[in-house]
Write a protein that binds this DNA or RNA. Structure first.
Lengths: 347, 347
DNA sequence: ACACGCCGGGAAAGCGCTATCTCACTACGG
DNA sequence: CCGTAGTGAGATAGCGCTTTCCCGGCGTGT
């Protein structure tokens, strides 16, 4: 009694060869019947092949097809953190659009480590995906940037397509998020609501997204006569927001009316910190974020933020990579200030 | 002047053959040098091959490897909705564990459509993944269940591994979520806090997760002398929660002290509905959820819920599929009631 | 000194497919 | 009635790899 006898009989998957034999046709005919070949095939044969395939529970081996065809049906997606709503919303968009194109998405997380990112790009390149979408946040001065660019360049010159999600992506196509303009518009609106004295809680210097948003916000304030009195730069995460806000409170808010968080998860963390300090967000100190992740409608008070249509961003990233260069819409994604109760009009 | 001349020279990726030629060794030696073969290869040759590979920016074609080896390094993951934190947290766990094993994750979303799910399983089977993880919610009586089971059975008999995330998965391995016990424990605790009259807002009948949680909750109440006065069953989503709660309020809460939502996103929606109706969640009517997604710490008041370690669930699902049968830990995942301010002690 | 095993490189046979090429067969115009 | 285009099925040459299998060269024991 061998081990094999114990578990369910393990059989190799049916191959096209098996199907052809079962149907009594040649390999070529079987292949032509099962996937839209240009060649016509006698209807009777076709039916025989289809029946045989069904009978044998045939499932075409995508790897073999990829090797034979010299191209895959795969899209690779790189994000910083899958559990972060910012990225998971985007990923949902990519997956949805990929599905429409009957493409399969492989997903990896850089965990915000550029070394890892480079590694992942190298590995994923082995898949020969049609497209690689890089949505993980870029850092300005990273030592790995050059290597990454080289790797992607190689990928493109081998016929792959690259799409970034970011504001600028060097030589590559990108879905442009106009962080600067969005933050600037937000600042103006807040000034309009009567705020004058601000602080910012945002990610470390060098994270491009964080830098751009801060710069835009500052520009908007200056134009309107507001002042950015304090800036803290903890991690670009929910806990970073909490921590940064706590620090701000401990050092004394003295007069700060509104805290601008570099993204929504930070804003949410900041609100918790405010509350834990015995203050009321919105009333004692206003809070604004960026992204408009779903959660922020449900916190109290609902958060003022800059809306980015994240799912659409994901979809557009894929389209951008798939469509003929030129045909694709490379205009910046439309962002929009959404005022909610976390920034009440100031008496 | 051809089109080719316009864009960057498009060259085929370097093949192992190219590397071998460049290094002046045979194909076999190149192959053996570049991936941990059992066979030893002369250190000098090895270095030559490595250098050649680096020079040519060689990236092994994973599809070709898969065909030649007859096995892949892929894991397929099916979830209902990637943007839903419940699933994205789990996905993050799967991806992390997969990364540890140097496996690549391909991800698809069923959008809660069992037809699609079946389709996706069929497609993904073509990848010949080592593992398929099905985390999308099961429905009790779905007409596609048999076909799905057959498909998975075929996959397993071809040497693939299947792991479900759910309470029961027929013949397949599963990471068990003890929804029933969790909900029952929650009910007991709530009774202990002084609540007696309850309503439930949960997903449609037939969604196994929803049914089990409701049954458990009911059992807990009965044991403790509480009553479940009303049940509404909208969609199993945030908006469903909002809608269900609105309905409850419109029909009159008369005496209901606490609303149990079938999951956290529903609870969050319900809290918004309560607030939009001019009431205060926690004070006017208490709310409890299930899952403990990150968001619920940050809503006001923080939500009482049953904690599921979602990331761990994802990791365990992969381990379960990868490890030798028997070696894997198939005990139900530990759930834990987390009392927060949305259910203050009563009277 | 010689047979014998071991070591490790190279040739080559696949892996499951696709796509090109071949070729028997039909149909049709001159 | 023959030559010539189509047609469409089948044979086959790959695709980029891995992994046998073969074989020459070396070290050892007698």
């Amino acid at each position: 009694m061998t081990d094999d006898a114990v578990e369910t009989r393990r059989t190799a998957p049916a191959t096209l060869h098996d199907v052809a034999r079962e149907a009594g046709v040649s390999l070529a005919t079987a292949s032509r019947s099962l996937n839209g070949s240009t060649r016509k095939v006698n209807e009777e044969y076709r039916q025989r092949v289809l029946a045989a395939a069904a009978k044998l529970n045939y499932s075409p081996n995508l790897s073999a097809q990829a090797v034979a065809r010299g191209s895959t049906t795969t899209v690779a997606l790189l994000v910083a953190d899958i559990a972060d709503p910012y990225f998971s919303q985007m990923a949902a968009g990519v997956v949805r659009e990929a599905d429409r194109e009957r493409l399969i998405v492989t997903m990896a997380a850089t965990e915000r480590d550029t070394e890892r990112e480079l590694d992942l790009v190298r590995t994923l390149r082995g898949q020969r995906p049609r497209v690689m979408i890089l949505a993980a946040s870029r850092r300005e001065d990273d030592p790995n940037n050059d290597a990454l660019e080289a790797e992607l360049q190689a990928f493109e010159s081998n016929g792959g397509r690259v799409a970034f999600v970011s504001s600028a992506a060097g030589a590559f196509h990108a879905v442009q998020l106009d962080n600067r303009a969005g933050a600037e518009a937000l600042a103006r609106e807040l000034i309009g609501l009567g705020y004058r004295r601000f602080a910012a809680v945002t990610g470390a210097e060098g994270i491009r997204t964080a830098d751009e948003r801060l710069a835009g916000f500052r520009a908007g304030l200056e134009a309107g006569g507001g002042t950015l009195d304090r800036i803290v730069r903890p991690a670009f995460t929910r806990d970073g927001g909490y921590e940064g806000m706590t620090q701000l409170i401990e050092e004394g808010l003295d007069g700060i009316e509104l805290v601008f968080a570099g993204n929504d998860v930070m804003a949410v963390g900041a609100m918790s910190a405010i509350r834990d300090a015995g203050l009321t967000p919105g009333t004692d100190v206003a809070v604004a974020g960026f992204d408009d992740i779903p959660t922020v409608r449900d916190v109290t008070p609902p958060l003022t933020t800059v809306r980015i249509p994240l799912e659409e961003v994901g979809r557009r990233a894929l389209r951008l990579a798939l469509d003929e260069p030129g045909a694709a819409d490379e205009s910046p994604v439309h962002t929009e200030v959404v005022l909610r109760d976390s920034t009440p009009r100031r008496g």
